[in-house]
Amino acid sequence: MSLDLRAAAKMLQFDEKADRVVPPTGFTARLTVFSSFAMAFLAVFALALSLAAGRVAERWGDELAQSSTLRISAPAGEGVTQTEAALRVLRTTPGIVDARALTIDEQRALLTPWFGADIPIEDLPLPQLIDITETDEGYDAAGLRLRLAAEAPAAVLDDHARWRRPLIEAASRLRILGWASILLIATASAAMVTLAANAALAANAQVIAVLRLVGAKDTYIARAFVRRFALRSLTGAAFGTLVGIVALVLIPSRGDSAGFLTDLSIQGWGWVWVILIPPLSGLVAFIATRFAARRVLEELA
């Protein structure tokens, strides 16, 4: 269906007399408002889900791009030797940008949240940690483990990227699923509005016959229906969006612990998408009703 913008704008112009020619249709009016309300409410959640999944994927992705950790728990006297050997191996391994042994102070800082600042770290048999920074392509973990086993047998490679990657993929798919849900919601909204508009047009066949008898153009007849359904959908979607936002706000805050479910919120530019839900719903209703009106008027000609 071609969308003539001038004709579309004319259809949305307020014309009290044109609006009055179609009698009030209580049932289809309520049905349209309710379905738009429900769809907008669901769209807010699908949007929040998608945006939250996107944030999780991004956060985990950023962490992936940081470091892996090598832990050397060597017997007393061999720690320094094996650390130096491990560093030599790491610095000659393709895919590794940098490898650096953490200082005593840095290791103390890592333990402070659990044991306090006064911990006598020098007296504890702590493993030596080596921070590894990868290239974007990463390194061959299996090959590195083999080389480390030969050069520094006490080294244990903590390759956290390997378990986070599936989570990132899951989060990315969840984001796609969220957008797909929004698309389905829009399609279902269009289908429901089309059904309601078809019912209203069929119920008003006599009105259409009278209007044609007195010389009404199809645009005039369609306008009364299109404006009505677009406005109903806009109203329902505005309320649905508002209630959806309130429901999101009522989800308990995540506090200090990061969690996916407690992060189901709209942030930053995400609000632009939320604000667009009612006008997009109205636009979908406008297009669906215009399509239905043209088809029915063609059939009744």
């Binding site: 007399k17 044109a18 009055r20 020619v21 009698p23 009030p24 006599q206 009105v207 016959a209 009278v210 209007l211 044609r212 008898l213 007195v214 010389g215 009404a216 153009k217 005039y220």
Partner: peptide, 30 residues
């Protein structure tokens, strides 16, 4: 059709609008 006035035996009107608005309907639609 605006140049042709039609009167049917079973005159059809918009039953929810008063007579004056029904009579003025050709003006409104044009």
């Amino acid at each position: 059709r605006r140049k042709i006035g039609v009167v049917h035996q079973d005159c059809q009107f918009l039953d929810h609008l008063p007579v004056t608005e029904n009579i003025a309907l050709p003006l409104s639609v044009s």
